[in-house]
Design a binder for these strands. Structure first.
Length: 428
RNA sequence: GCCGCUGUAGCUUAGUGGGUAGAGCACCCGGCUGUUAACCGGGAGGUCAUCGGUUCGAGCCCGAUCAGCGGCGCCA
């Protein structure tokens, strides 16, 4: 039986059998205390000479941290045990006596990254991975309920999706391919048949960023919807984030508490989120004493200062046209601004979503491409989409790892990913 | 790319007027009848990142190299 199902009065007094790995081990005279861990939880087991065969007792004395075992015994309710119940062992089998396990109570972040393949077993990582799983699960459920289709786009691409960013170059049968940095353009191709689509896939950025919120490979959730406006998309997104937070409170309370994340912080996440125009957010920054010009891309530090005091995410919308990529649709009533938005997570975590309306008129798109100094030849098929039954549409991209980092209250995005890839880390 | 910092046992680290390298955890041996990342006694474990220099003598001072960390910039 899994350990979690032993942690109730139901099986107290009966013979139970479980298996797992040695999490803690200590002996005191004729007693051996084993704390066993499996995918669900931990439980203490007591081995006492005479209560099982001598061979099994000798096995118990030889166990090391992370040894894999199966044990059988009477389940007892015990206040002194770490999870309230313990097994009085009558039979014990070891599958593998583990070699000296390198992880002890003294460990640095760097060391834990070097041995990530072993650190995955920790309660912290296990809890993080379960929370991560739930975020993915809830997102998919939400899209499904809203009538979205899940689709798949290529990771090998022939050219940049957005200008400016650094791409990973990959040899491709004599020509150069690149790893995708966003699936957005491909998603736009799907809306003419499926209307509402999303995908969750890796995106790759070869930027030499050294910050707590950048990875070179990250999980990108992206969506596109025909007929949707910028403001409607914002409403869609905030509902999704609220849904994620409330699902975690329902399903992952234990894991949040292992990570010492205050549930109150998640309870605060309710609609509507704050919505500020770009100009308003600049005013807000100035009121906090920042020295900001009228048009400036908010840096790491500014974002942190602005979002620190908030208790739930905020939107910044309608940025100056010059600050955003060419595909954002300029506001017909105010062409100096584009109909777009960023969602910033509170507590200083910063940007988790970027999205908005896409230009759907062919001539306007051609004009914006050349205004940005780009070559229309590079965007052939993307322009094509505007020639055959083009429709108004919006979309967004969300960094799943960033959402997890914020929601679980993690220090660094590296802790949100089992095997993080950064500018300086490719292994394990 | 820029600025700052670090490298001593498997891990976490102490160690500057330059003079035989010290501890905790983990590991091994022994003890303890309820332990909570226990406690007590003993043991083993070091090319002080690498290379060069100064010096009678370098973990410590100087130079170069390598590796990494933090911040900024760049950037969903």
């Amino acid at each position: 039986m899994h350990i979690s199902s032993l942690l109730s009065d139901e099986h107290v007094g009966s013979l139970v059998k479980t298996r797992g790995w040695v999490y803690r081990w200590r002996e005191s005279g004729p007693l051996v205390f084993i704390i066993v861990r499996d995918s669900t939880n931990i439980i203490q087991a007591i081995v006492e000479r005479g209560k099982l065969s001598d061979d099994d007792f000798e096995t118990a004395k030889k166990l090391t941290i992370e040894s894999s075992i199966e044990l059988e015994g009477n389940l007892v309710k015990e206040k002194k045990a770490p999870t309230g119940y313990e097994i009085h062992v009558s039979k014990l089998t070891a599958f593998n006596i583990a070699e000296k396990f390198p992880i002890t109570k003294d460990k640095s972040d760097e060391f834990l990254l070097d041995i990530r393949h072993l650190w995955l077993r920790s309660r912290e990582m296990t809890a993080t991975l379960k929370i991560r799983e739930t975020i993915f699960e809830t997102s998919r459920e939400y899209f499904k309920e809203k009538g979205y289709h899940e689709v798949h786009t290529p990771m090998f691409v022939g050219a940049a999706v957005e200008g400016g960013s650094t791409l990973f170059e990959v040899p491709y049968f004599g020509e150069k391919a690149y790893l995708t940095q966003s699936s957005q353009f491909y998603l736009e191709a799907f809306i003419y048949s499926l209307e509402k689509v999303y995908t969750i896939s890796p995106s790759f950025r070869a930027e030499k960023s050294r910050t707590r919120r950048h990875l070179t490979e990250f999980s990108h959730l992206e969506a596109e919807s025909a007929w949707m406006s910028n403001q409607e998309m914002m409403t869609f997104e905030e509902e999704m984030i609220v849904r994620i937070a409330s699902d975690l409170l329902d399903k992952r309370k234990d894991e949040l508490s292992i990570l010492k994340r205050d549930p109150e912080k998640l309870k605060n996440i309710e609609t509507p989120f704050y919505r500020y125009t770009y100009e308003k957010i600049i005013d807000l920054g100035r009121s906090k004493g920042m020295d900001l010009p009228d048009i400036v891309d908010l840096g790491e530090k500014e974002e942190r200062e602005i979002t620190e005091g908030f208790d739930k995410p905020l939107f910044v919308y309608n940025f100056p046209t010059s600050l955003k990529p060419f595909y954002h649709r300029p506001d017909p009533d105010d062409p100096a601004h584009v109909l777009c938005h960023d969602m910033l997570a509170p507590e200083g975590y910063g940007e988790i979503i970027g999205g908005g309306e896409r230009i759907w008129n062919k001539d306007e798109l051609l004009r914006r491409i050349s205004e940005n100094g780009l070559n229309t030849d590079d965007y052939g098929w993307y322009i094509d989409l505007r020639r055959f039954g083009s429709v108004p549409h919006s979309g967004f991209g969300l960094g799943m790892d960033r959402v997890l980092t914020w929601i679980a209250g993690l220090e660094h995005i590296k802790n949100a990913v089992p095997f993080p890839r950064t500018i300086r880390r490719l292994r394990p």
